[in-house]
């Protein structure tokens, strides 16, 4: 258990901190995530790689916290890390799945690709994206919808 924590926590904490931007909230979200990981480990979906599954839970916990705290996750400045930790699980090469996804995202327009990445890494909501891209909410919704449809089509084949 401790080993699992030691190996995975830098990755998961990095994701939480980037979404929440506040160490206290990121810590709380990560704590919730690990409790949930241990609690639901038995029911872990067999078709999801273990680290990917943990990443999903950590993001979910961070996003819940971000939507709960109005002042969290609204930082506009780029995420900068002074002291990145060495990731024990970092692979030398990117996985095939990532390459395929990046190729897919490459087919989206520049703006919509950035939108998807900002949502994934920075946890930005439709509202935040609307402010950042200076576009009305319904436009953002339409862009997101088209992105989802196009990713769906690309990856379904």
């Amino acid at each position: 258990m401790e080993r699992l924590y030691k190996l995975s926590s830098p990755k998961l904490y990095g994701l939480c901190l980037r979404i929440l931007r506040r160490p206290d909230l990121a810590r709380a979200a990560l704590r919730t995530a690990y409790l949930r990981i241990w609690k639901t480990a038995k029911a872990r979906p067999a078709d999801l790689e273990p680290l990917a599954w943990m990443v999903c839970i950590a993001r979910e916990c961070a996003l819940e916290a971000a939507r709960t705290n109005e002042d969290a996750g609204e930082a506009w400045e780029p995420f900068e890390v002074e002291d990145p930790a060495e990731d024990p699980l970092a692979g030398a090469t990117h996985s095939e799945a990532l390459k395929r996804l990046l190729a897919c995202l490459g087919t989206l327009s520049e703006e919509r690709r950035r939108m998807v990445l900002l949502a994934f890494y920075d946890g930005w909501s439709r509202e935040a994206l609307s402010v950042y891209f200076d576009a009305p909410m319904h436009t953002v919704n339409t862009w997101l919808k088209r992105s989802v449809v196009e990713i769906d089509e690309y990856l379904a084949t």
């Binding site: 990917a52 990443v55 930790a85």
Partner: peptide, 10 residues
């Protein structure tokens, strides 16, 4: 989820 491979660890 594969996008996490590009995320910074802290």
């Amino acid at each position: 989820a594969p996008l996490h491979e590009l995320a910074v660890s802290i």
